[in-house]
Nucleic acid binder design. Structure first.
Lengths: 201, 201
DNA sequence: CACTTTATGACACGCTGTGTCATTATGTAA
DNA sequence: TTACATAATGACACAGCGTGTCATAAAGTG
């Protein structure tokens, strides 16, 4: 059963209650990654340190990368919801790019601890295997942005290019923020969206 | 020893000559992937079908994904060289975006067989594991584009956003071309670069 | 007390990617 | 012919990932 199904599950009234806290497990994993390195830390190491079984670990995380990328999911989720509501509202003020910019920045607010996020992103930056996963992890955002743009009248192929460029640029923005010490990622994201334009039809 | 070292090696005058043709091996791998599926084809299957040892296979290809992505290397290489020479020439006519556009299109010319490339890209599109690798595989192009932009006077952070967006958009262009039946990828690449802009400083 | 669900533990499996090692094949140059 | 250098094989081993099954225990509900 994927972790999504667990997270979005209706609160049960029957059965043994959940005892494993995925966030706590992920935090332990991040600590081990920082201490011993990502490749040098096996899934069994993490399970042992978290005091759970290896199978239980795979129950909440589809793979090793999920332990790192999972923490970014709220950002992606919120950012996507902003796009959806903007689509429902029938376009944003200041053009479609303003809508994309607003959505990208909106994701920042849901992060409980920016320091942890910075560590997460630095880990991603250091490991090509993790950085590559941005294409998969950000796929939902890409699709929602595409739907938003198409509904706003942007030609379909152009919408595809714009979304791909958007994802690439915003990911780079997060990377640049993580590499430095600035507290607020928002200016980076705004600047990233600034390299986009909607060509004349 | 990485395959790069083998490919760029000076022609030897001594020792046993090379008998394995990497291109032929990759072609066999692509055929097997098409027949049985990517995941369902093991490295041992490929080695057996190619009539070579598994170790020899790893000698020429760092991993399974390399068998698919390897064929795109000439495109990336040529595209990067165009950027380097444009940088040496001190900027291109029509602004930096024209330089990026020209470099992206230049890569198309070196492809010996567009039909094979289309098959390759479709395989990549179907498998997230392969599509994700675009971030790694196109990294050299990203870095060369960054150097080109910075030398052209673009602010460094903006250059980063532009390059990330460029890579994302051009990859999407290749994907869209591969999904259809148009013979020429160039218009797709031109349109992809069209969503970029260099913001005013 | 049933019933439901979580979690464990053990065991097995195929595959990737890495490594070592001895051995054979095939060329060039002295 | 001989010496040398390199390519390639085959065998064997290994850690790790991710998947799967199965029986069992724990901890709550009605």
């Amino acid at each position: 059963m994927p972790s999504d199904a667990l997270k979005t599950a209706v609160p049960r009234v029957t059965g043994r209650p959940v005892t494993i806290d995925p966030d706590a497990v992920a935090a332990i994993a991040l600590r081990l990654f920082a201490e011993r390195g990502y490749e040098q830390t096996s899934m069994e190491d993490i399970a042992r340190e978290a005091g759970i079984g290896r199978k239980s670990l795979y129950r909440y995380f589809a793979g090793k990368a999920e332990l790192v990328w999972g923490g970014m999911e709220p950002v992606i989720e919120v950012s996507g919801r902003v796009l959806d509501s903007a689509r429902a509202a029938g376009g944003a003020d200041g053009g479609v790019l303003a809508g994309l910019r607003e959505a990208a920045v909106a994701g920042v607010a849901v992060l409980p601890d920016l320091a942890v996020t910075r560590g997460r992103l630095r880990l991603i930056a250091e490991h090509p295997e993790l950085a590559s996963r941005s294409y998969e992890s950000l796929a939902p955002q890409r699709e929602r942005a595409r739907a938003y743009l198409v509904s706003a009248g942007v030609r379909e192929d152009v919408a595809g290019y714009l979304c791909a460029a958007l994802i690439g640029a915003t990911f780079e923005a997060w990377m640049q923020w993580a590499a430095g010490t600035d507290p607020d990622p928002a200016p980076y994201l705004v600047a990233a969206v600034g390299v986009l334009r909607v060509p004349e039809p």
